[in-house]
């Protein structure tokens, strides 16, 4: 009897504080319940279930110079199925732009943030990939990756390597636009069914007092590489 009493006393040192704690937390929960949902929503806005990658996080490139090219479908006009292509995410390198004549060898990334332009050429995400038959709009800094554009001439050939195919483009036009003029031109031609590679950078290349508003623009048309079939309504 005495032993049971002793054990009970000892156990009371454990379960009494536990009971008190549970009651206290219940009281706090009931008192703060109206604010709890708001607080929980606020916290969920700032957290994720796993560690997320932001545009500032280094993403491994999907471009692999040794990758096997995509399967070419046999048809009247051979093509590559868009479903066989690994579409890049923001900040991922998906290609390499080369022009040996002017010494240009630039990695190409999807999206055109400040972070990306430090590393290579960024593609405006409103345009499409090589082979898709639409405009490809690339930008880069004139002191680094697109510095060779100043030496480019009409007729030069640019190679655009991707995992799925190697494309070549011939320069058709080199012009200096005002930034607003370029913007209007891009908007006007963005959805045309003509594959045109457009590379632009700040102009002039030298120091200029004040903000630079001109853009050196190099346009090139595709001369080799397979079409990518991406529109579902196209018949075979």
């Amino acid at each position: 009897m005495k032993k049971i009493s002793k054990i009970n006393k000892l156990l009371a040192y454990i379960y009494m504080p536990v009971i008190f704690s549970i009651i206290a937390y219940l009281i706090i929960y009931i008192a703060l319940k109206p604010y709890w949902d708001v607080a929980a929503s606020a916290v969920s806005l700032f957290t994720s279930k796993t560690e997320i990658q932001t545009a500032s996080t280094e993403r491994p490139p999907i471009y692999d110079p040794n990758a096997e090219p995509a399967e070419v479908k046999e048809a009247e006009k051979p093509y590559i199925d868009a479903r066989d292509i690994d579409f890049p995410g923001s900040g991922e390198q998906y290609g390499q732009l080369i022009c040996e004549k002017v010494g240009m060898d630039v990695p190409v990334y999807w999206d055109d943030t400040y972070e990306i332009l430090r590393k290579g050429a960024g593609q405006y995400p409103g345009t499409l990939l090589p082979g898709y038959g639409r405009m490809i709009l690339l930008s880069a800094h004139n002191v680094s990756h697109f510095h060779p554009l100043r030496d480019m001439e009409v007729g030069d050939v640019i190679t655009f390597n991707t995992n799925y195919c190697k494309y070549e483009y011939e320069v058709t036009e080199i012009q200096v636009y005002n930034e607003l003029e370029l913007e209007n031109w891009v908007i006007e031609h963005l959805n045309e069914d003509e594959e045109i590679l457009v590379m632009y950078t700040c102009w002039p290349f030298e120091f200029q007092a004040g903000r630079k508003t001109d853009r050196l623009t190099v346009k090139a048309k595709r001369i080799s590489g397979y079409d990518v079939k991406w529109r579902l309504y196209e018949n075979e």
Binding site: A12, Y13, P17, V18, F20, A24, Y25, T47, K49, E51
Partner: peptide, 30 residues
Amino acid sequence: VYAFGAGFLMTFTIPFIIYLNGFYNRLNIA
């Protein structure tokens, strides 16, 4: 003794659970 034991549990439990959960390691801030 029960009071101080409860004081310990109240002050310790929820912060410890949050510490184990580690939600603060998944903050979406740069």
